[in-house]
């Protein structure tokens, strides 16, 4: 597939899950493709990074389901903050473990999974649709019933995949990308390289092959498709670019300039404008 074909499968009003974590292994080429399309009115489900910031800045978000939004190397995302402070979209703010539980419940076709996280905080008070449940066993404990976070579609970026949708993550943390795929009616992988399972096993042990093809609707090869987020071990987070991205939240003019240089162009031009392949692959893996 192409990135445009992937975005062509998405429709206004969808609940869209985006994999990765903060500024780590986000499917940014697909996010930029959304920004070049008219797709809007999205319910976004994300361990948020610049994917959230960009879609908020472009006014495509109706509701955000999140535990945090961060750029990792910069604590807060200026675009998200601006939109959040203006009340531009509806909010479902939950604990990051509740978030995982919601995806897992969706993946397992369960209505909810019980957890303690969120009880006795304003997460419960601010989300009155969240219900509690009493354990049916002798303990009778009150638990929060985290509802399934069923996704209409999920977008994730991995290192390698085969053309049928078996995906491999070579970085140290898979985050929850396999769960995003399993929780979605349609899941699309962008990847650094489309190859074969045999070749993937040359590059990483079998434990790195986390996503199986039954959970994937389409694959698109987009080298450097996570930039400016990191795709360790291939390239780290581009801190300089994220600084430029953050500065673009200052006013309309700054946003317009960023948009023209990085968003209104195709992926090849984006990579060129972002410093080129050699520059990006020379960014060392991020140290925390």
């Amino acid at each position: 597939m192409t990135t445009a074909e992937v975005v062509g499968q998405l429709t206004d009003g969808m609940t869209l899950g985006i994999g990765g974590w903060g500024a780590r292994r986000k499917p940014m080429a697909l996010v930029r493709e959304i920004l070049r399309s008219p797709l809007t009115d999205l319910t976004l489900v994300s361990y948020g990074g610049p994917d959230v910031g960009l879609l908020c800045a472009a006014g495509r978000v109706r509701r955000l389901v999140f535990g945090f939004v961060t750029l990792d190397v910069i604590a807060l995302d200026a675009h998200f903050r601006r939109a959040r402070q203006a009340g531009d979209f509806e909010i479902t703010e939950i604990d990051e473990g509740m978030f995982q539980w919601g995806l897992r419940a969706a993946a397992m076709r369960l209505p909810f999974l019980p957890t303690r996280a969120g009880l006795a905080t304003d997460v419960q008070a601010r989300n009155p649709e969240l219900k509690t449940i009493s354990s049916p066993y002798d303990d009778g404990e009150t638990l929060l019933a985290m509802p399934a976070l069923r996704l209409d579609a999920a977008l994730v970026h991995v290192d390698q995949a085969d053309s049928r949708g078996n995906g491999q993550v070579l970085g140290p943390d898979p985050y929850f990308d396999d769960l995003f795929c399993a929780a979605a009616d349609q899941a699309y992988l962008s990847c650094e390289r489309i190859t074969t399972a045999d070749e993937m096993l040359e590059d990483g042990c079998v434990h790195s092959m986390l996503i199986n093809r039954s959970q994937v609707s389409g694959v698109v090869e987009v080298p450097l498709g996570a930039h400016p987020t990191g795709c360790s071990p291939s390239y780290g987070i581009d801190a300089a670019h994220l600084k430029e991205y953050s500065a673009a939240a200052a006013d309309e003019q700054a946003w317009g300039a960023y948009r023209e240089r990085y968003l209104d162009v195709d992926h090849a031009a984006y990579i060129k404008n972002a410093g080129g392949r050699d520059h990006i692959t020379a960014i060392p893996s991020t140290i925390y």
Binding site: G48, F66, G67, F68, V69, T70, A75, L76, F80, R81, R84, Q85, A86, G87, I91, E93, I94, D95, E96, G97, M98, T115, R116, A117, G118, L119, A120, T121, D122, V123, R126
Partner: peptide, 26 residues
């Protein structure tokens, strides 16, 4: 660690609750 001020139109949006609800109860 979520917001300063009104919840729907905060004066300052911070990180979001992250894992703090789950950490503090567990």
């Amino acid at each position: 660690i979520s917001v300063i001020g009104d919840y729907t139109r905060p004066k300052v949006a911070l990180l979001g609750v992250r894992g703090i609800p789950g950490n503090t109860i567990n």
